[in-house]
């Protein structure tokens, strides 16, 4: 009798659990569709074997949506490389199972993207801080070329000067700190900044970010091979085979093969993409290195 009632209890408990799980999935699915139907959000989703993979692809797709959205906004057209601050922290994520696969849905409020006009943002790929002025029409987009800092003081306390005429600036450049909407002459005034700005276009910046995430020399080599196959990296190799040091970016490793940083192209002074400050090859003398040349 007791065994029978135990069986009944387990069956009931199982049925209850199954129903609850199924209802939870349905609720998530309904919430996802509610967001998709709302015109206030940009969204993307991916279903993959693991949640991490799905999240990665979903965020890639979301970035594409964000880029397209920015491109479609007249007042933001010049800022098509401006990405909202650390997109993962501003966006929301929902996950659910789909059979044995993981479905990840990510979304971000359009207002948050439009809000970049009044906020300090970070290039999602580089982590470089970019402040955008609160002018209702986005100030002409221009990049501050990095001035050569003295070797003994590679940290960029040196003022960054805007020298690029507005109409010659490539579309993929990003706005800089304290840019007045006024004349070019005024723009030539030094801007107070302690960090350097990335000198790369969007996809190049993402390549650097992907490489910085690799961690060690084995992973970096594999990544470089992959990037070469994708025509994003033209060539790479060991220091003794570098055809033109100034044209190449340099990946610096410690003695254990762990990545220290990546230095941009340049002669005396280069951008340290991990620290986002000026540095030079001389600062890393004696360390292991690989060079690579980015495609244009």
């Amino acid at each position: 009798m007791r065994t029978k009632s135990n069986k009944c209890f387990f069956l009931l408990a199982f049925a209850l659990l199954f129903t609850t799980m199924s209802m939870a999935q349905q609720t998530t699915s309904k919430e996802i569709n509610k967001i998709k139907r709302s015109s206030s959000y940009l969204y993307a989703e991916a279903t993959m074997d693991s949640e991490a993979e799905a999240a990665e692809v979903a965020y890639e797709l979301l970035m594409k949506q964000v880029d397209e959205y920015i491109g479609s906004k007249k007042k933001l057209t010049s800022a098509d490389n401006v990405l909202i601050k650390d997109i993962r922290s501003r966006s929301e994520q929902m996950s659910m199972m789909r059979g044995e696969m993981h479905r990840v849905f990510v979304y971000v409020k359009k207002n948050d993207i439009e809000g970049v006009m009044n906020t300090t943002v970070v290039n999602a790929a580089s982590g470089a801080t970019i402040t955008i002025n609160d002018n209702p029409v986005l100030a002409p987009v221009h990049r501050a070329p990095v001035q050569a800092a003295p070797e003994e003081n590679p940290v960029a306390t040196t003022p960054v000067v805007n020298e690029v005429p507005v109409n010659e600036v490539p579309a993929e450049e990003v706005a800089v700190d304290e840019v007045p909407e006024t004349s070019l002459d005024e723009e030539k005034q030094p801007a107070a900044s302690t960090a350097v700005q990335s000198d790369l276009v969007g996809w190049q910046q993402r390549v650097i970010t992907e490489l910085l995430e690799c961690g060690d020399i084995t992973a970096i080599r594999a990544k470089l091979n992959r990037l070469k196959a994708q025509y994003r990296v033209k060539r790479f190799g060991t220091p003794d085979k570098c055809p033109n040091s100034a044209e190449a970016c340099w990946i610096i490793f410690d003695n254990n093969g762990n990545l220290i940083t990546i230095l941009g192209a340049g002669s005396d002074s280069r951008i340290d993409y991990r620290e986002m400050k000026l540095s030079s090859l001389a600062n890393h003398r004696g360390k292991n290195a690989l060079w690579f040349i980015l495609a244009k």
């Binding site: 279903t47 993959m48 993979e53 692809v57 890639e60 797709l61 594409k64 880029d67 996809w203």
Partner: peptide, 14 residues
Amino acid sequence: GLQQYVRLMKEGER
């Protein structure tokens, strides 16, 4: 696979 789709489309934009 979705990953391939994303990668190829990104290259296409570039």
